[in-house]
Simulated assay, not measured.
Amino acid sequence: MKERIAAGFSRHLASYDEAASVQAQIAARLSERLNPIMPPKPRVIELGHGTGFLTRHLLPLTPKEIWLNDLAAPLPDLQWPEQTRVHALRGDATEIDWPERLDLVASASMLQWLGAPRDLLDKAAENLVPGGLVAVTSFGPGNFPELARLGLAAGAPSYRDAIGLCHDMPRKMEVIAAWDETIRLEFADARALFGHLRATGVNGLMGGQLSVPRLRHLMKRMDRQGPVTLTYRPSCCIARKPGPSASAPPSKA
């Protein structure tokens, strides 16, 4: 699975930024809730940075240090503040050596690809300072219902809705925000829909089991059924480790 995911996204990095509009929206909405509650100059790790949708929204935090991890993608080409130390952590997020005493563990549109996301969230909590935050997004079990109706199996092993993400958080973590969304894209025809999946690297969800004749049959069936849509069901969760953050601003009380 890991090799297939890396290969699928590596092949389509050039088209990802333009095609992955939903993933860009998800990263923006997560940051809207996250950034106002972050302490100044945090120590941050982002897991699965991809082409940098969420990474761009972490820039305004002016991190003291940031570790950027991805299975396949190179570091996003961004202009970081001079005082920010940027570290590349290439590889499987479940196997890398994590930095300690983090203020934030962030990840957008990546957890669904893990076989055991709870293990990663346990590791995140262990490496947070008191008061530190975990901010993650995934996709819910109802993701791509149009494809499910065609008999295509889910491509990711760990779809979680917001409740599922909260359940996967370690007990010691306090959930401060969790929500589900629905984002529906419309396409001119089925060929355009599958082109979208290919351009975002998600065509691997068929696992190589979809033959050319069957694909053509499914596309004709979709075109006959009327408007061609693809529905994303993103899920989001932000949780805090109990205790005051060492880098939090002093109380004004």
Rank of each mutant, 00 (worst) to 15 (best):
M1T: 13
K2T: 09
R4V: 04
I5Y: 01
I5Q: 05
H12M: 14
H12A: 12
A14W: 06
S15R: 11
Y16R: 05
A19Y: 10
Q23A: 08
E46R: 02
G48H: 04
H57K: 06
P63F: 00
K64I: 03
L68K: 00
L78V: 06
Q83S: 15
T84G: 14
T84E: 15
L89H: 07
I96H: 06
R101H: 10
R101L: 09
L104F: 11
V105P: 03
L111W: 13
L120D: 14
L121P: 03
E126N: 08
V129T: 12
P130E: 09
V136R: 06
T137S: 15
T137A: 13
P141F: 08
P145A: 06
E146D: 05
A148W: 05
L150T: 03
P157T: 10
R160A: 11
D161S: 02
A162M: 09
H167I: 10
L185V: 08
E186H: 12
E186L: 08
H196G: 01
L197V: 01
L197K: 00
L197T: 00
T200A: 01
T200C: 03
G208S: 04
G208K: 02
M219W: 06
R221A: 12
P227Q: 07
T231N: 07
Y232F: 12
Y232W: 09
S245T: 03
P250C: 05
S251I: 03
